[in-house]
Design a protein around this nucleic acid. Structure first.
Lengths: 226, 226
DNA sequence: GTCTATAATCCGATAGAC
DNA sequence: GTCTATCGGATTATAGAC
């Protein structure tokens, strides 16, 4: 009389455990037997709910995309195109640092599965992310911040730059602590921005830079407490 | 009387086959048994020459770095800092497109092997590449092409941008033919360049851009044959 | 230096009883 | 929907004969 549905559908329980397992052991360490152990059933039981290992991992990639989407959409709370743009860049970084394995999975699922084509579900979600960036750029172009000639290409430059920086860091190629990396990310972002900004916005960025350099040493000024 | 040494040391024969095998089957498909079959011996024989699978793959990474180095050093034939800089960017791209698996291996060896630290041999070779870029940038700074304030960081921006663009392409996230991608790479490179160039060089780039846009449609002008 | 034989695991997936 | 039992395969790596 009380429980019309089971607390969680078995398919969802499996998916949750699959995400946990992937985040713990990565792609290679992910096996149906380990997954079964984590769920608390035997391996054959899983095949009632997922056709095979690939389908399970495909569902995990879906989750990864969901989490990324949550981070990105949060940046829409910014009140101006410029702010939404900047927040989107931060959101992408936050997602990658909070969930490095998800970040990696999104871009290298096909390789790991030995597929020579990106599965359609994944390709669609990638497109959505691209469109999101495109929208942020378009807004900024319309607001006179970014150059209008190269609307499409500008999005690509931004994406590639952010992705590259983050990947190098996650691969351990940049031997710096996280906080330092965040500063490098922000700094590098501004350098690229100068190259794609309208002359008006570029000189504004220039002025900000000079103001910062005029300061003694540290970054943003904090009111001296005490 | 004629053959003082065997034609190739067994260690080298194994390494050659290991490279071939890795380039064909990738990281996951690489097993000691397959390698043995390719060499023409049985698996246990390999362990006389390499301690284990990891050591073999470490040697393959070394080869990957050698090939990359060859590509990069070729760009030193350029006669001005600006030309060497541009050629280095092309060389990095050529290497990645000619040897995508080597490119990937260089940056994700640790992940694939499940190590949580980049092995020292690999880290050293990465540093060498970084220094190479740093030298190209320094030359350009000294020639008055690039901004001097941010010498270190500029190299990082360039590296991350190139790496990101190439990785996205190799991961199948950019659905374009290779020739199109090369053009995108070149175009994106210029956008970043504008952001790190000295005002003098930046306005020179700007002039080039306007000259191109004045043309009807296509890229560089070719003399109309026949 | 190479071989045969084998240890010791692990894997994905299925058949068929319950 | 879950179980037991199992098929059929893969893997790294070693022992010991030659």
């Amino acid at each position: 009389m009380f429980t019309v549905f089971t607390m969680t559908e078995p398919r969802d329980r499996i998916l949750n455990c699959a995400c946990e397992l992937y985040l713990k052991d990565g792609f290679e360490g992910f096996s149906m037997r380990k997954l079964a152990r984590r769920v608390g059933v035997t391996a054959p039981a899983l095949y009632r709910h997922y056709e095979n290992r690939e389908k399970v991992l495909l569902a995990v990639v879906g989750q990864a995309h969901n989490v990324l989407a949550r981070y990105l959409y949060r940046s829409l709370a910014g009140e101006t195109p410029r702010e939404r743009f900047a927040r989107a860049g931060e959101a992408y970084l936050d997602f990658a640092l909070d969930h490095p394995r998800y970040f990696q999975m999104i871009y290298s699922f096909a390789e790991f599965m030995g597929l020579d084509e990106v599965p359609e579900e994944v390709a669609e979600e990638t497109c959505a992310v691209e469109r999101f960036w495109h929208d942020r750029v378009r807004e900024c172009v319309e607001a006179g911040l970014l150059r209008s000639h190269e609307l499409e290409e500008i999005g690509l430059s931004l994406w590639a730059h952010a992705y590259g920086l983050i990947s190098l860091y996650l691969h351990g190629m940049l031997d710096v602590p996280e906080e330092t990396f965040r500063q490098m990310y922000a700094g590098s972002f501004v350098r690229l921005l100068r190259g794609i900004a309208t002359p008006a916005y570029a000189s504004e960025l220039e002025a900000e830079l000079e103001a910062e350099e005029a300061l003694p040493d540290a970054g943003p000024v904090k009111p001296a407490a005490k």
